Amino acid sequence: MHKKQDFLIRVIDDEQYVLDSLALLLDVNGYQSECYDNAEDFLISVAPSVPGCILSDIRMPRMSGMELLFKMKERQINIPIIFITGHGDIEMAVEAMKKGAVDFLVKPVKEAKLFEAINKALDFYIIGGSEKEYRERISTLSNRERTVLELTLHGLDTQAITEKLGLSDRTIQGYRWRIYQKLGLNSIDQLIKIIRLEWL
């Protein structure tokens, strides 16, 4: 199991006082951090193999948080990202979550919310596995298992799936158990986290 010291939190913001305050807060709570005042410098120096997450302002003058997210996808940099936003940027932040961001925090950031979001992002590593590994595992699912998986991820409960597919509760539960076994997961929450990271 990872310890806090195993993770590197990358902080990206064009305001120095934000970088300083977040770096101090992370340090006091046992996390290592790296700070960047623009997204370009982050992209030049990032080491994707080092586990952790990104805390990034969504509105920056040179490269926005959304542009950063797209660049990361292009370069296959699979580090969970959390956006920090002003009240006027909430709609943009919600769109970013649809594109794969883990969460967004509204300024001024509350400490409890910050570490709740960081813990959510670091579940990426606690679950274990890479994008390639999960794609390989998903490829082992039967057509029926993939159907049950897709319906589950669309929010359907066991009863709704049984009605849609005309199968018994016990049969659907059996499919779910085999899905979890093949993917190496324990719960629907972990499946949802994988989808948020766009592993399917």
Rank of each mutant, 00 (worst) to 15 (best):
F7G: 08
L22C: 02
V50C: 12
P61R: 01
Y125K: 12
V102P: 02
S45Y: 15
M66G: 05
I54H: 01
E95R: 08
P61L: 00
I126E: 15
A93T: 02
I84F: 01
L68T: 05
A101P: 04
A112G: 07
Y31H: 01
P80F: 00
L105V: 02
L122G: 10
N119I: 07
E116V: 10
D123T: 14
F124L: 03
D6G: 09
A93F: 02
L26A: 01
K113R: 15
E95Y: 11
K110G: 13
F70T: 14
E74W: 07
A96S: 04
I127K: 00
G100R: 03
K120M: 12
V28M: 12
L122P: 09
F83R: 00
L114Y: 02
V28Q: 11
F115V: 08
M72L: 04
D14I: 09
V46N: 04
F104M: 05
V106F: 01
L122T: 08
N29W: 08
K113T: 11
Q32C: 14
A96R: 00
A93H: 00
E74A: 11
G88V: 03
F42A: 11
T85N: 06
K107P: 00
G100S: 04
R75E: 12
I44G: 03
D6S: 10
I58A: 07
D27S: 15
D37L: 13
G88D: 06
Q32P: 08
F115L: 02
Y31A: 00
I79S: 06
M92H: 11
D37A: 11
N119R: 13
L26S: 02
V94L: 09
I9E: 05
S33G: 05
F42D: 07
M97G: 08
G128N: 01
I82F: 03
G86S: 12
A47E: 15
S64A: 05
L25Y: 09
Y36W: 04
D89M: 02
G128A: 01
I90R: 08
